[in-house]
Design a protein around this nucleic acid. Structure first.
Lengths: 245, 245
DNA sequence: ACACATTTGTCCGTATGTATC
DNA sequence: TGATACATACGGACAAATGTG
């Protein structure tokens, strides 16, 4: 069985296609707790062992499966949690991350300003570089999910407007600007909310929340975006699969 | 230059040895923002390209470096944060994770009990299986860092006592019992602390904290440990490097 | 704008080691 | 013990992105 799929017209490399195909089959419950062996997958997809192993490693990294030498490839049990789970291992942008939910945004602030010393250091750019600031209340299926305070380097993201930031900025950057978001540093801490923030997130005064600071890099390792997002932790939990080397 | 190192007498496979050697050199500032090319590393360590690439991928996964096709291997800038950073991508056990600090523990509770239905489900084991419960106040350089509420399946971890749990349980499990801790699921959320918990962590009443629920697996995918740890988030932040596939 | 060298990415093949069953 | 299945390590070839002149 040869299965070559395309993602929105883009040509994908083999091992990623295979990975996504296996992932779909896992979601569709086509396997019974265990994947076929490497050898079987090699024959199914008609690719080399290295290619199958690269594909499998993608699924391992995102916590979908785990491997046991000498035994096989096992599908991980899903946790039974009523909260929305944000998988940190694949977390680049929210809209793509939570496709089963509807993410909408209310723009609380949108303006442009020249970087001061601190901001220039964050972005590793020259002072006076123009920076977009976007503050949004992000909602999941209509309920307040997070307050996002985000900054974009205008030298890299040349144009933003109110209409764009009302929707998925990442989708705009990737699909329209054809920029290549490659990696991201995420720092997770806790923050006590101001009264205004509590009100926005529909929480009691004096509440705290999960705060994620993100530094987002393009392929060429330029920082195009820095943000701090305050998550209503009544609704979400973060998930991180960890593999020993 | 051939450099084969041993870790505590254990034989390590080549790509891991190379990875750890490069990591040490990064810490020692032997490179100037950029690693030697793959080809140069191949010659330095006298290994194949695949082996070098496996080694490099370990460092990428833990956020030490990033790669730019056509350009090179770049060392990631360290964040300037006064908090202790817990790197989730390598977080299996605290003592090993924070070697620069002294982790000590005060045992708040230690007993054994038969699993009820809920605990049996957590461990994916039979009800009535004996479970160790360990509650510890963990301290970093003498300051209260976290309250850990941890459970061990006695069928797997056959023996624990008060003296062992005062020290690093993971070191005991790995070094003394020679068990192989392979992977871990981490769920991060926030918790409002009880008055007693606030007191233990030296926080004001009504404070909240980061809570990490961990499910820890052996090589054979058996769950040997489940825990919930309440981190004093004044002192720590979590870090997660994310790479797009 | 173009050609070229450099550097990492993808893909293939083969052999042998180690853990599980 | 042997068979199965994943892990490690070697090799080569070509593609794609980057940097240089």
């Amino acid at each position: 069985m040869v299965l070559i799929q395309r993602d929105g017209g883009f040509k994908m490399v083999k091992y990623k296609e295979v990975a996504e195909d296996i992932q779909k089959r896992i979601y569709a419950n086509e396997f019974n707790g265990k994947l076929p062996t490497e050898q079987a997958l090699i024959e199914m997809y008609d690719v080399s062992r290295n290619t199958i192993r690269s594909a499998i490693n993608i699924l391992v990294k995102r916590g979908s499966i785990h491997k046991v030498q000498g035994s096989g490839l096992y599908i991980n049990r899903k946790t039974t949690d009523d909260k929305t789970i944000i998988n940190l291992s694949v977390k680049i942008g929210l809209t793509r991350l939570l496709p089963k939910s509807t993410i909408t945004s209310e723009v609380l602030d949108f303006h442009i300003f020249p970087a001061d010393a601190a901001m220039a250091q964050e972005f590793n750019c020259d002072p006076e570089t123009l920076i977009y600031r976007v503050k949004r209340l992000r909602m999941i299926d209509g309920k307040p999910l997070a307050i996002e305070n985000s900054y974009y380097n205008k030298d890299i993201v040349k144009y933003l407007d109110k209409n764009i930031v009302k929707n998925s900025i990442y989708s705009y950057i990737e699909n329209d600007l054809k920029m290549d978001i490659r990696f991201s540093d995420e720092y997770i801490s806790m923050k006590r909310l101001s009264d205004e923030e509590c009100h926005l997130l529909n929480l009691n005064q004096g509440s705290s929340c999960l705060m994620i600071k993100e530094i987002n890099f393009l392929r060429n390792s330029a920082i195009f975006n820095v943000s701090e997002t305050l998550y209503n932790s009544d609704h979400i939990a973060l998930y991180a699969p960890v593999q020993r080397d």
